[in-house]
Design a protein around this nucleic acid. Structure first.
Length: 431
RNA sequence: UCCGGCGUAGCUCAAUCGGCAGAGCGCCUGGCUGUUAACCAGGUGGUUGCAGGUUCGAGUCCUGCCGCCGGAGCCA
């Protein structure tokens, strides 16, 4: 019976078939130890000369790193194995044996070498654990919304009208239509959808043509956005802290082995429960000024400033009520102070930066037109967006969560590029 | 785009003041019934990123170019 490594603990004493790959092989003449993986986990297979047919034993001598093999054997509990369980082979059948040495054979390769071989690097243990966490994060996000009656709305990747800011959009030719752009947000479409279906979310890739070269940036990254009709600023902030705590709790529950394997300190993640601390932009500026930062009211925060603010708290922290001139055109002004808007950024702890950008959206037609003009945006292109304020407009709010930044933070990664299977960074689209 | 750093064997790195191009790993051969980056013995490996310059002599110094890494700005 074909069994996956993940399930071997439930088959102790049984004869099983494993289909997978050789990670490494060690030999002591009459005994071979195969580090075996099948995509669900890693296990040691022991091949003793007296326990297998001659052909199988001879086959083991030919095995190299990343040979594909089918193993028949018995599952044994064994204290000598770090997994508690190992497989004593009865037959070893190679599927393919490489003709050349496997390029990733030691844990001391440079990043350029590994990035050039990302298609093989993904097989490594550390990358396996990260991708398993990513998988759970994606499941958690969808589950969170579906449990709460949200509708998944897949927003387009080709967009005609521009999203937020021109200049950092990827431009393409769209047959005879002319120029279109790769989406840098699905927000405007989600706003349309929330007026149709109430509570909506998306989950997909977005693109920023920014020549950013930092550990927090990708050119192509995944974003989860949500938009809710009749939600105002306060409802929006609560939804965000519930989402982020839900994701962290889910991963702790379903994937803590992977986090431990990655060397993550789980205690730091266990603290991530609502409510999250909040400070206003104005308070944050004072905090920074009192700590020697050269910043004045109206400036946006840089990486160092964000890291400092986040370092004052053990949980993610909301920074709210930014100056309207520092933010996008569609944000609703604060009725108590029209110079600031009803928005928030969520800063992750430990220097992982902004993981959420959020706001209540302008629902008044005239105000929105005024802002479009103020930001020098082409009103014609936003005609359909303005329609949303012509018929049945209501207060509504939403946000965007950076999926890879969230994963990088939860896993404790040095660099965001490991949080996505095939990262697109500045100057790299291979493989 | 700007600032800084790096480029030597398949990989990771050494090479003192400018003076013989080195090591570990990988790979090949042999040995070993409890290995965990296995170990032991032997073998294999070079256009020092590219182009030019200084010098008796350049991996090392100078100029230009290319590539990569880190950071800034911008953002999630």
């Amino acid at each position: 019976m074909w069994i996956y490594v993940r399930d071997l603990k439930n088959h102790v004493g049984e004869h099983v078939e494993l289909r997978g790959w050789v990670r490494n092989v060690r030999s002591s003449g009459k005994i071979h130890f195969i580090d075996f993986r099948d995509g669900t986990g890693f296990i040691q297979v022991v091949v003793e000369k007296n326990n297998v047919d001659e052909e199988s034993f001879a086959n083991c001598k030919k095995l190299k790193m990343e040979s594909s093999v089918i193993i028949h054997g018995v599952v044994k509990e064994d204290k000598r194995s770090p997994w508690g369980v190992e497989v004593l082979a009865e037959r070893v059948t190679p599927v393919q044996i490489p003709q050349e040495p496997y390029p990733i054979n030691k844990p001391d390769h440079g990043i350029e070498y590994l990035m050039e071989r990302r298609h093989l690097w993904l097989r490594s243990k550390r990358q396996f654990h990260i991708m398993m966490v990513r998988n759970e994060v994606l499941k958690a996000i969808r589950n969170f919304y579906w449990e709460r009656g949200f509708v998944q709305i897949d927003t387009p990747i080709f967009t005609g009208a521009i999203g937020e800011t021109a200049g950092n959009l990827f431009e393409l030719d769209y047959f005879d239509y002319g120029k279109v752009y790769l989406a840098q947000t699905g927000q405007l479409y989600l706003e349309a959808a929330c007026l149709a279906y109430g509570k909506v979310f998306n989950l997909g890739p977005t693109f920023r043509a920014e020549k950013s070269k930092t550990r927090r940036h990708l050119i192509e990254f995944w974003m989860n956005e949500a938009e809710v009709a009749y939600y105002e600023h306060e409802d929006n902030v609560r939804l965000q802290e519930e989402l982020v705590s839900y994701i962290v709790r889910w991963v702790l529950e379903k994937a803590s082995d992977h986090l431990i394997a990655l060397g993550r300190d789980l205690k730091k993640l266990e603290k991530v429960e609502p409510p999250f601390p909040r400070i206003t932009y104005t308070e944050a500026v004072k905090l920074l000024q009192n700590n020697g930062f050269d910043i004045k009211w109206g400036d946006d925060f840089g990486g160092d400033e964000e890291t400092f603010i986040a370092s004052q708290f053990e949980k993610p922290v909301f920074v709210t009520h930014y100056p309207r001139k520092a933010k996008a055109f569609y944000m609703q002004p604060d009725p108590n102070n029209p110079e600031v808007v009803l928005c928030d950024d969520l800063l992750a702890p430990e220097g992982y930066g902004e993981i959420i950008g959020a706001s209540q959206r302008i629902h008044d037609y005239d105000l929105l037109v005024e802002r479009l003009k103020e930001f020098n945006l082409p009103i014609e292109a936003y005609d359909w967006y303005l329609d949303l304020r012509r018929w049945g407009s209501v207060p509504h709010s939403g946000f965007g969560l950076g999926v890879e930044r969230t994963i990088a933070w939860i896993c404790g990664l040095e660099h965001i590029r490991e949080a996505i299977p095939f990262p697109r960074t500045l100057y790299r689209v291979y493989p």
